[in-house]
Design a protein around this nucleic acid. Structure first.
Lengths: 292, 292
DNA sequence: ACCCTCCATAAGTGATGCTGATGCCCGTCG
DNA sequence: CGACGGGCATCAGCATCACTTATGGAGGGT
């Protein structure tokens, strides 16, 4: 009758699988129960949420979907945070990070033992921290110097800067612009770009930094491996923006040219919930000490 | 057993009122039910949330409180958005706005009839829009030119710029700096300031714009009336930052000096959910046409 | 010392949320 | 064209749950 998390969870499962019975199997209910869940939701909200045959969200249902995900995520985050406070401080340190956030400097600050490193696409890092899957997150992105990064706030997360470095454009060795000593982003708006939301810097950040459109993706890479990304750039599949430390790759057939315009830096930030305890706190301190 | 919205709602009520029985009265339950709700939550999360006698949140409880508010808010937002889509488009237009966002230009764009104007403190505007209490919101704040405002995202809200204007410092007529033709924020960090989160620009935005601390509040004004605020400034209770259009107030015993440094503007933005329909859409279009 | 307030607990009851069975609709295939 | 089958809706039955009322116990104030 009221918008129970249970009902929402069933709803997203049904919407995702486009099937009542499949959702029932996944959730360990009977098909009947799922049907009643959806009926309860629809009656509560006073509007149909799913078209049957085929099972697909209505317009109202799509709206609900936009809310349901973050809602359930935040619910998990709340539970994780509260229960973490109850239990003893965890041994070890689980760190969620984007691949390019793992600069030599951050890696050096890691404690020698007890570390679990979890490399994730950029968008999944805050989520991992919020739900307690990681004690600490490292995210990176493009920003004006000394400006904070803009993160989607799934939950109240604390962030602090963990370093900045120049940005470089990665070009295949034979590229006409490869001899330049500096490049301006505006001159590259019409070039072929790699869209690598998991590994490189996502194109929408380029558009935001440059202020307008352009930057059409030639190839989309969904992995998190920077070496592969560099390989793609070397093979001429498109340009990528990388932090200096990741772009310096002799022998890969690429050239990394500094970006001169606009004045943006590759910024990496530590993100965590509440207060830090144990190994996570120690790591944060060591990062702070070596801050560039 | 599971983190039911009901349980969260009673939890926040108990925490706010610091009393089980008072919360029970407010929610229309018996005291016993409230007690069971809290017990269920505490058992589910495996940790005490409230100290009794006096009733006050534990550390874990405080964490939960941080999540519970936004969570419940977003639940309401989801319900509002879905049910709004179900019913017929509303007649009229309800507009939630901060007082200083209501510049002459925005007021001129209002349709001649059917408007309900709801002036709220800055922080409440996105909430009003998200929960459907208003069709449209107008928020303002300090930003670098052409930078978007940073709003707390209680729900996926769409924003678009609705105008910018210069910022002025309001000084009492006899103030030593009143003769200046321009002022720098850095020179005023140690002055007495009015903290007016509802009416003027909140001090924390000043600190953010200036990059450091300072800007200690001399008096805090919690209303939403700009005339009163100007009166306070005239009486020497402190300085305020206001958009040009609000600061031009001859005969009030104040002088409005342009702010030259840092380069920030008073920016106002329209905020709304999903797509606009009816009068709200028309208003947004008219705002766009007259965009400065 | 007593009482009064306030929270916890126990027992009872109506409502709820599940399961299993069955019905109905529609697409598919013989 | 009719029979079959997959998939969602509906129904009845039952176990559990979420309330209520009633009572107990702990503190603080007079």
């Amino acid at each position: 009758m009221r918008m129970d998390p249970h009902l929402l969870r069933t709803y997203v499962a049904v919407a995702r699988l486009a099937s009542f019975s499949a959702a029932a199997r996944e959730l360990g209910y009977t098909q009947s129960a799922v049907s009643q869940h959806i009926a309860a939701l629809e009656q509560d909200l006073g509007t149909p949420l799913l078209g049957r045959r085929p099972v697909a969200p209505t317009r109202a249902g799509e709206r609900l979907l936009e809310h349901a995900g973050p809602l359930l995520l935040r619910l998990d985050a709340a539970r994780a945070e509260v229960t973490a406070l109850a239990g003893a401080p965890d041994e070890g340190l689980t760190l969620a990070a984007t691949p390019t956030a793992l600069t030599p400097r951050t890696l050096r600050a890691l404690p020698p033992t007890g570390v679990t490193l979890r490399v994730l696409p950029r968008a999944d890092v805050p989520e991992a921290v919020a739900t307690g899957a990681a004690h600490l997150g490292l995210v990176d992105g493009l920003a004006a110097p000394n400006d904070p990064l803009r993160l989607a706030d799934v939950a109240p997360l604390t962030t602090r800067g963990a370093g900045q470095e120049p940005v470089r454009v990665l070009l295949p060795a034979g590229h006409p612009l490869a001899r330049r000593t500096g490049l301006r982003l505006g001159d590259l708006a019409d070039a072929r770009w790699l869209d690598a939301p998991g590994a490189g810097l996502p194109l929408h950040q380029l558009r935001a930094a440059h202020g307008t459109g352009g930057f059409r993706p030639a190839l989309r890479y969904e992995g998190t491996d920077v070496r592969t990304l560099i390989g793609l750039a070397a093979a001429g599949h498109g340009l990528v923006l990388l932090p200096e430390s990741a772009a310096a790759a002799p022998g890969t057939g690429t050239v990394a040219v500094p970006l001169t315009e606009p004045r943006v830096v590759h910024r990496t930030e530590v993100v965590h919930t509440g207060e830090l305890r144990g190994a996570a706190a120690a790591f944060a301190v060591r990062l702070d000490i070596t801050r560039s």
